[in-house]
């Protein structure tokens, strides 16, 4: 079976491990990988008038930065490994959006990294992993 792997990627080491894992599996199966980056966002947050005015501009800047600083280098790095690589950058709640991407792309598996127990980022990631296993529409692998 040639599967499509959606990998949650945020530039962290754990995410990198997850990506390497997915690349290895995909390569073995002749499958492909979608590197997905989700910018945490809630439409129910509170903004100041100035933030409202600049939101559209900031969003563009955030997307550009994610594309050039985060995605471009990693895509370049893994593109030589013989696996077809796609990217997705979206806004929303991380776990929910990863599931949406998995559904939209017809993925066969979701892969994310886990940070262990160090620091706040790990806690955030931990909760993403927790939420993801509960709601994922496809099998989900958490790479330690």
């Amino acid at each position: 079976m040639s599967g499509k792997f959606v990998v949650g990627y945020d530039g962290s080491e754990a995410a990198r491990r997850a990506l390497d894992f997915a690349i290895e599996k995909a390569s073995a199966q002749g499958g492909s990988v979608v590197i997905a980056h989700v910018l945490e966002w809630s439409p129910y947050s509170f903004l100041t008038p100035t933030e409202l005015e600049e939101r559209h501009k900031r969003r563009k800047e955030e997307l550009d930065r994610a594309e050039t600083a985060l995605m471009a280098p990693v895509v370049k790095e893994v593109s030589g490994k013989g696996v077809e690589v796609d990217t997705a950058i979206r806004y929303g709640k991380i776990a929910e959006v990863l599931c949406d991407i998995a559904r939209d792309t017809g993925a066969s598996q979701l892969v994310i990294g886990r940070e262990g127990e160090s620091g706040l980022a790990a806690r955030v990631f931990g909760s993403v992993a927790g939420a993801l296993v509960q709601i994922s529409p496809v099998p989900c692998t958490i790479v330690p």
């Binding site: 129910y44 509170f46 008038p49 409202l52 939101r55 559209h56 969003r59 979206r90 806004y91």
Partner: peptide, 13 residues
Amino acid sequence: DAGEVSHFQALAT
């Protein structure tokens, strides 16, 4: 359009 100003945010502000 996620990441843009939502109706809720405009109303809340």
